[in-house]
């Protein structure tokens, strides 16, 4: 029973990891930018959620209505103001700049909120659970997973059925030719980063409701997201969800064997899949 429980918890945890990964994957797909600050932006969103709940006295899930537009706007400005200037044939400048951004965010959060662990309270939602046979499934993890499926499904739909998604794919294929179509790539990149950070806002708040957070935990979230993307296969959104689930299950099974093995089991699974399938489980067919 414990094992089945571990697997179910792992699957649900995978939803959160898929949310970490989706924004990362979107940015890499559209502009080949690896955003080292992604994890810290998730933590930033959690803190913004915390401040919103305190200042407005609202439930963390409602705080999303404030934090999502805030992060999206910040993403657009960040992209147009800073990151666009680093993009080019050389992959190194954007890596260095987002690494710098990561350090800046961490230090700003330390200044603003201290190093003390924080948590957002979701009230009764935190302890609510549904019985499933002999198992008891937490409503919050279930909700997180459902949101992850919705976000990834929505992203997929946007990518393949809207003008914006078409523009994302076109710019990703060939920036010059996309410009000839009247698409300003700087604006499109700004929109992609806005969308990425909107998802980050969702992920950050769900993270902050689920566990304690402090300014230093961004790096590990970046790695989880990164591993989920690679396991699922670059450029495949549903693959990213599967990647998140595999990582989550590996971690909970590891923890079931020995509580200290949670993270290690996740990393080993990642390395194993990378060794066997270097392009991930479901690499995108074209390109």
């Amino acid at each position: 029973m414990n094992w089945i429980n571990a697997i179910v918890q792992g699957i649900l945890l995978g939803g959160l990891y898929a949310l970490f990964a989706a924004g990362l994957s979107l940015i890499f797909g559209v502009m080949r930018l690896v955003n080292i600050a992604h994890g810290d932006l998730i933590v930033l969103a959690a803190y913004l959620g915390l401040s919103t709940t305190i200042m407005l006295g609202v439930h963390p899930l409602l705080a999303m209505l404030v934090v999502i537009p805030l992060m999206a706007l910040g993403g657009y400005v960040l992209q147009r103001g800073v990151l666009n200037h680093t993009l080019g044939d050389d992959l190194l400048p954007p890596l260095l700049v987002t690494f710098g951004l990561s350090v800046i965010i961490q230090n700003a959060l330390l200044e603003g909120y201290t190093a003390d662990p924080q948590k957002m309270s979701a009230g009764a939602l935190e302890t609510a659970s549904l019985p499933l046979g002999d198992l008891s499934i937490g409503v919050l993890p279930l909700l997180t997973f459902a949101i992850a499926v919705l976000v990834i499904g929505g992203l997929h739909w946007m990518f393949y059925h809207t003008a914006l998604g078409r523009a994302f794919r076109a710019v990703s294929d060939n920036q010059d030719i996309a410009q000839l179509m009247g698409l300003n790539r700087r604006h499109i990149f700004g929109l992609a980063m806005a969308l990425s950070l909107a998802i980050t806002a969702v992920a950050g708040i769900l993270l902050g409701v689920r566990t304690n957070f402090d300014p230093s935990i961004g790096g590990a979230r970046l790695i989880f997201g990164f591993e989920a993307v690679i396991i699922g296969g670059l450029g495949n959104l549903w693959g990213t969800l599967v990647g998140g689930v595999i990582l989550g299950v590996a971690q909970t099974i590891g923890a079931q064997i020995n509580p200290g093995w949670q993270l290690l089991a996740g990393h080993i699974t990642f390395l194993f899949i990378l060794a066997v399938r270097p392009r991930g489980l479901f690499p995108r067919m074209t390109g």
Partner: peptide
Amino acid sequence: QRADQIAFNGIALVPEGRQLFPSLSVEE
């Protein structure tokens, strides 16, 4: 001007080697 501004002004290029968008269908 940037290429996207020029496109809005009414100049279109059929590029050498066709250069279609591989991720897009014919109609897209």
